[in-house]
Design a protein around this nucleic acid. Structure first.
Lengths: 160, 160
DNA sequence: AATGAAAGCTTAACGCC
DNA sequence: GGCGTTAAGCTTTCATT
């Protein structure tokens, strides 16, 4: 078995079509997908099961409106971590319930942390908590004035 | 403690329970939600319909694995825009299919752009495209070496 | 708002190709 | 791998409270 350049080679056009449909509407009925792709619904059922099993589909989720729920502030915090404690500090921060993203960046010895909180008060509470974490040396915060786009959809047309 | 003025006050505990369930598994059957909350499934159906209509639930999505699909690089690009053309430039950038997030930040006259691309080649292609956009003055890019957490789930326990 | 009941659809499991 | 069938389960509507 020869390894492909990238694992996406493991899936075919039908799989990609299924993924596109479910990425756009995660509640689409299997029977509806079958209709659109002109295949039997038992076939689609089996394809989707395999895509889930192999991890191409990680989960299904309702996407909620943060502003309507009062979780109205987005901020990006650059965290300078004690060198050598990068991974550990990042994982600790990731456990916090307001933290949506933690990335280890190239360049400076920095973590980039995205948080969503309730108001400026929520942000300042978060920053206090963060400052007390072991291994956190310095933080610098940028608040979003306006979020123009915020989307986790992937572009599946890259290798058409 | 008086009631805050945020719109979350429009929903009750049952709604919040429904949102939590659907945020964790967007394909949960309405009848299953009804069972868990010990209510009729017609009631849950109506509640969910209203939550959708009022915009608390924006959409349903399958969450795909970017690495398995070959979309393996994450980068954050700080874009310095021509002052006064902020909004316009941000919206233009947001249209690009590799762009997942665009935020207008406080402080410097900066946009923060999150992209997901196929390899370093995809990144350099993106940066070339970006550099040619009208109103983009300067960009500076940070590539993620490792993504520790990447999650769009909201913490709904904030006002319990 | 919430409910039970009923009609129509959907899923999931089967055996067959 | 793909398909049709079928039983069980789900969604959606509606009359009732």
């Amino acid at each position: 078995m020869s390894e492909p350049t990238h694992p996406a080679a493991d899936i075919d056009d039908v799989d990609r079509s299924i993924l596109k449909i479910l990425q756009s509407d995660g509640r689409t009925a299997l029977s509806e997908i079958a209709r659109r792709l002109d295949m039997g619904s038992a076939t689609i059922h089996e394809r989707v099961r395999t895509l889930e099993e192999h991890g191409f589909i990680r989960e299904y989720r309702a996407v909620l409106d943060p502003e309507l729920l009062g979780i109205d502030e987005v901020a990006f915090v650059n965290v300078e971590a004690n060198p050598g404690r990068f991974a550990e500090v990042g994982e600790r921060i990731a456990e916090h319930r307001s933290v949506q993203e933690v990335h280890e960046l190239t360049g400076a010895a920095d973590l980039l942390v995205k948080v969503r909180v309730r108001g400026r008060e929520g942000l300042s509470d978060f920053l206090s908590t963060l400052g007390e974490y072991d291994g956190v040396q310095k933080t610098s915060t940028n608040v979003a004035l306006r979020t123009v786009k915020e989307e986790s959809r992937l572009d599946l047309n890259g290798d058409d």
